[in-house]
Design a protein around this nucleic acid. Structure first.
Lengths: 349, 349
DNA sequence: ACGCTTCGTCGAAGCGTTTCGACAAAGTTA
DNA sequence: TAACTTTGTCGAAACGCTTCGACGAAGCGT
């Protein structure tokens, strides 16, 4: 393994000169630069990352903090990871996967103090997240994917849930739907203050009022079975519903199956729109799901770029970037049936 | 940020002593160890990873090589990554994601030469993979997830495709199926010599002969739409089929949908068994897929442990570990219909 | 009481870079 | 032409750790 000293000797210059052509920190004449470059090529020289890191106190590695618990990652999270990884590599950085949940502060503390990582990308952010306080205390640069309760002094990149709900509801309203169910995440995540669940809940209520239509909200587990149960319950509570908004890919497929088995046609009788959904899963369904496509990879890349920019400029200002999910109309949404129920519904009271 | 010198001063010992209590390389008396430990605690000392790496020429980081191309990772690959990450962390290692496909040798060359990583986990291995030659040439320890044509001198961990096919076919045969279609990966991957596709193809043929039953093999794209097309074609080529084996999760869902729309009941008329499938996707289907559950996380963990063991023992011997997929009977497989076709089929000739 | 090994500790020499101050040589200004 | 600035290069001091050789102090057999 050739070292910088070898290169220097071969090129007939000092090591510092070699370092300068490598880093571009000081001007070097065309002639010497060429000699040095040639020597490097001949020796197959590659700078030693550790030595570099030690001397410059930066590793060119960023850590991706994500809880690796239970059933593993969904397609959206995965896209996020790959997007971040790609973006990092394009900027000459590396990405380290750190299985660190909101709970393991010790783990994070030692990670951040080890000086192995230049900064952090934080996934699965809770509304109040101890990792955030900790990182701030340790003065480690970081960017959140998601948002905490109070975003002051933080940099975050997130999905624009409000906009996404608005767009989804608007789509259904445009199609003539006047009674819509919102199948949210689980009661547990709602109770624990999981951001996306809370935000979309509020946005859904607001959208209902704005459009002057009615709806129900039913929380559910993130599984196909959960979706089946939820749509049953929604139809009991609100038999007139013709539109369904689902916050979860897995539940969405269950809903489709349940509706089919109940003899209802999708989108003929009921329209289903899936929120924050990956294209792969949307295409898995039959018919393919009309969905708000989550910008997974784009989000990951955006977060990474924000972090790297902050590292370069030593910038710690507040920053927020929200990306909406794009409506992708596929096979599960269509015009609402004519409201022959209007009269009978009134008669019912 | 406290350094080792600070700790040494505070504990009234030399830096080397501190180092020894940290690494355990040499015996240290109970008394001094305690003093040093106390000093560390008081100063919130954390060893500097870079300095450590430089001095010891090991980083405690392993790289995970995976092509990050196109549609992103499937659930199985994702499980693999998380399994590997977890296993690494448990052993005090870190995991770096390296988007390096079989093509980017340059990228890999510099990665390996930089001395940033102690070893590599190689995913998506081709039957002849340039990364393998390169890593071997550079004398970087590595473990394959998958297998190359010739495994001599290599360490690899892989799914036992032969066993998995055997088990799946046996399951169908036990249920009385005598005509089975095998929906494999795409023609392109077959042509490029993608290991799993080739191996399962051969294993399927062998299983057919062994059981004395008939079957067809149809390659298909890895999408729901691909699955639909494939099952149509399979039924044209072989109208008597009652059992289907699918090599792809996404295609499996398409097959289910297509059969349903063709008026066939699953598992009443046709049984479907999905190979190398993640539980999440299997549960997404209605009815839930009978599947050979891929040991994603377990595989990832196994590969990591093998790599770490080789790092520790400087072992470079040939090694192969094959893990089968476990049959998980869910809702898409059942007894074959009585063969009233037997006579008419014979009459046909 | 003698030479032995073993134990516990220290000092110093790296590990391969970056970075700072210094300094000739060349270029610029007045 | 004197007095500066800029350009290009060098040497040496970090960076924070590991590891090697050395060595006094015990512990052991004889």
């Amino acid at each position: 393994m050739a070292t910088m000293t070898d290169v220097a000797r071969r090129a007939g210059v000092s090591v510092s000169t070699v370092s300068y052509v490598l880093t571009g920190t000081r001007p070097i004449s065309e002639a010497t630069r060429d000699r040095v470059l040639a020597a490097m090529a001949e020796l197959d020289y590659q700078p030693n990352a550790m030595a570099r890191g030690l001397a410059s106190r930066k590793s060119n590695i960023v850590g991706l903090l994500l809880p690796l618990t239970g059933r593993g990652l969904g397609a959206t999270e995965t896209a996020f990871v790959t997007g971040a990884t790609e973006a990092a590599r394009e900027a000459g950085y590396h990405l380290m996967l750190c299985p660190v949940g909101a709970a393991d502060s010790d783990e994070l503390q030692s990670l951040a103090t080890q000086r192995l990582l230049d900064g952090f990308l934080v996934m699965e952010v809770q509304l109040t997240d101890r990792r955030v306080e900790l990182l701030r205390k340790l003065e480690s640069p970081f960017v959140l994917i998601g948002r905490t309760e109070d975003g002051a002094g933080l940099a975050c990149v997130d999905i624009d849930f409000e906009q996404t709900v608005d767009d989804a509801v608007a789509h259904l309203v445009d199609l003539g739907h006047e009674t819509i169910a919102y199948i949210n995440h689980s009661p547990a995540s709602l109770a624990s203050g999981y951001g996306p669940a809370k935000r979309t809940e509020a946005a859904f209520q607001a959208a209902l009022e704005r459009h002057g239509i009615t709806g129900v909200m039913v929380p559910t587990e993130d599984t196909a079975a959960g979706g089946r149960a939820a749509i049953q319950r929604a139809r009991e509570e609100c038999p007139a519903l013709t539109g369904v908004l689902v916050m979860n890919e897995n539940a969405a497929l269950g809903i489709l199956a349940e509706l089919r088995e109940a003899g209802l046609d999708v989108p003929g009788d009921v329209s289903v729109v899936s929120m924050v959904t990956s294209e792969v899963v949307a295409d898995l369904a039959s018919p393919a799901l009309t969905a708000m496509t989550s910008p997974g990879a784009v989000l990951g890349a955006a977060a990474t770029r924000v972090l790297l920019k902050r590292l370069a400029e030593d910038d710690g200002s507040t920053y927020e970037e929200l990306l909406p999910c794009a409506l992708e109309v596929r096979g599960t949404s269509g015009r609402a049936k004519k409201r022959k129920t209007a009269r009978s519904a009134r008669a019912k009271r």
